[in-house]
Amino acid sequence: MTMEAIVVNNLTKHFRKAYDKTLKGYFISLIKREKRYKEFTALNDVSFSIKKGESFAIIGKNGAGKSTLFKTLSGIIYPDSGDIQINGKVAPLIELGAGLSRDLTGAENIRLNCAIFGLDKERIEEVYPKIVEFSELEEFIHTPVKFYSSGMKARLGFSIAIHIDADIILIDEVLAVGDKDFKKKCYAKMEELRDSGKTLVIVSHSLKPLRKICDRALILERGKVVEIGEINEMIDKYQDEKKEKKAKKNKKGA
């Protein structure tokens, strides 16, 4: 048995900004002999590893490549180079209401998502009541998800993700919504999951709760790893940097 849950080596991902996503656009740019796409490096030589049972945070500004990193980890996007080893089942919770189908009811969405993660029928029936209970959506469970508020969607998404028997849970910004009580409940659940030996990878803007949940953190800036280390150290560093930049800006302004 390996000790690592996730090993990422020299991961690089370029995005092409298509100028025009039609055949017409393609031929026009072909005739004009212009470059058909602009390249943009979202991830640049990213390497890190996460141990089993560890809680790992990824912090960085908007556009630093956090979401791209998450999407490559969950298999939605293929990297251009480098490799990712994942030992165990991954439950990605990307953005709010990840993987929820708007026209389906909450109940149908629970079944659909469980099936997506490969749970069989009996197992789905087993976890279904637990998911409903945790989400506190009993009243609205037979309402199509399109009528849900963003907080309700986040609750449903989070409840599903923690009940699908995954070994590794990826959580991206989801907890920005939802009321205070539910947030508290989520953090408590995350701690519980961590203590039960699951691996958590969290991207969040609210840094405060991360100190409690996570063991280590990675600072990402413009697709590059700045530093990896102990959580409190990293958060302090990140915040100091921010303050420094702000101070510099203010100086310039003055």
């Binding site: 969950s74 939605i76 990307i94 993987g99 998502n113």
Partner: peptide, 9 residues
């Protein structure tokens, strides 16, 4: 697209 963008299978 909503499913494809969020989860892999």
């Amino acid at each position: 697209s909503s499913l494809i963008k969020k989860v892999y299978f």
